[in-house]
């Protein structure tokens, strides 16, 4: 019996259960199924820069560990010649096609990594303290402000960490490998227990 293909978040099973209640000062959530493209190219080449800027509607972040937002598309600096482009759900493959077309004849590499990674969101007034339990970076807004990102280790797994502060308080996005998502979620949920009012 054949079934039609379906997608499943790596957190299917754990992610749907509310770990911390609404009253908690830390909340965990997942932003699944977003389009994620890994782009590599030479920023010293004006043809590459112009083509990418034209498609994305703005420049690539060239400062190490920064993020650029162009409309609904977020671009993370991963390395001096490497970026991660995150699009809303369903927009990844279209953007890939457009970028590939615009970059034709230019030296570049573009891979769709959407299904290999997912995004965890840690928000609330104590979000920074929760992450600091297992991360050696200084997450104080003075040292790690919105617009910055960092690839680092969190509880032993590689994550791409960024800060997106909202009106209701700090919010951190963690882009993690699919295979680490379940472990990291459980780890964070365990660490978040103390922020749950009794």
């Amino acid at each position: 019996m054949s079934e039609s293909p379906r997608r499943e978040s790596p957190l299917a099973g754990v992610g749907s259960q509310p770990v911390v209640g609404d009253a908690a000062t830390v909340r965990l959530a997942e932003r699944p199924f977003r389009g994620q493209l890994n782009l590599r190219g030479d920023v010293a080449s004006p043809t590459f820069v112009d083509a990418v800027t034209g498609v994305l509607g703005g420049p690539l972040p060239v400062q190490p560990n920064t993020v650029a937002d162009h409309g609904e598309v977020r671009i993370f600096w991963l390395g001096p010649d490497e970026w991660l482009i995150i699009t809303p759900e369903g927009a990844g493959s279209d953007l890939k096609t457009v970028l590939q077309k615009a970059l034709e004849g230019i030296h570049f590499a573009l891979s769709d990594v959407s299904s290999g990674q997912t995004t965890l969101v840690v928000s609330g007034p104590d979000a920074g303290s929760l992450l600091s339990k297992s991360c050696t970076l200084d997450l104080h807004p003075r040292a790690f402000a919105p617009g910055q990102c960092a690839q680092t280790l969190l509880a032993g797994s590689t994550v791409l960490l960024s800060r997106l502060d909202r009106a209701h308080g700090p919010e951190f996005e963690l882009v993690v490998r699919r295979s680490f998502a379940d472990y990291l979620w459980r780890c964070l949920a365990d660490g978040a227990e103390e922020y749950q009012p009794a």
Binding site: P64, L78, G79, P80, E82, A150, Q151, T152, L153, T158
Partner: peptide, 8 residues
């Protein structure tokens, strides 16, 4: 090598 960071 900055293996868990920029991988350079």
């Amino acid at each position: 090598c900055h293996a868990h960071g920029c991988r350079r």
